[in-house]
Computed example of a mutant assay.
Amino acid sequence: MHFKSVLRALLLALTCGSFALTAFAQWQWIDKDGRKVYSDRSPPADILEKNILKRPGGFARAAVTPEPATSAADPASPAASASAGKASAPKLSGKDAELEAKKKQAENEEAAKKKAEEEKIAKSNAETCERAKKYLGTLQSGVRIGTTNTKGEREIMDDAKRAEESKRTQSLVDGNCK
Rank of each mutant, 00 (worst) to 15 (best):
A23S: 08
A23H: 07
A23I: 05
F24C: 08
F24G: 12
F24E: 11
F24Y: 11
A25E: 04
A25Q: 07
A25F: 14
A25S: 15
Q26N: 12
Q26H: 08
Q26K: 15
W27L: 02
W27A: 01
W27E: 00
Q28W: 03
Q28K: 15
Q28P: 01
W29C: 08
W29F: 08
W29K: 03
I30R: 02
I30H: 01
I30V: 15
I30T: 15
D31H: 07
D31G: 08
K32Y: 06
K32Q: 14
K32L: 09
K32I: 09
K32G: 04
K32F: 09
K32V: 12
K32T: 11
D33V: 05
D33N: 13
D33F: 06
D33P: 00
D33T: 13
D33G: 06
G34L: 06
G34H: 04
G34A: 05
R35G: 04
R35A: 13
K36I: 11
K36M: 08
K36E: 09
V37Q: 14
V37Y: 01
Y38N: 11
S39I: 02
S39F: 00
S39A: 15
S39Y: 01
S39Q: 03
D40V: 07
D40Y: 11
D40C: 04
R41I: 06
R41H: 13
P43F: 07
P43W: 00
P44A: 08
P44V: 05
P44I: 08
P44R: 06
P44G: 12
P44T: 07
A45C: 04
A45S: 14
D46T: 08
D46K: 06
D46Y: 13
D46R: 09
D46L: 04
D46E: 11
I47F: 01
I47M: 02
I47C: 03
I47Q: 00
I47T: 12
L48I: 03
L48T: 09
L48C: 04
L48N: 09
L48E: 13
E49D: 15
E49Q: 11
E49V: 12
E49A: 13
K50L: 12
N51R: 13
N51M: 09
N51Y: 12
I52Q: 03
I52N: 03
I52V: 15
L53S: 05
L53E: 14
L53F: 03
L53M: 15
L53C: 05
L53W: 03
K54L: 13
R55W: 04
R55K: 15
R55S: 11
P56W: 05
P56H: 01
P56K: 01
G57D: 05
G57E: 06
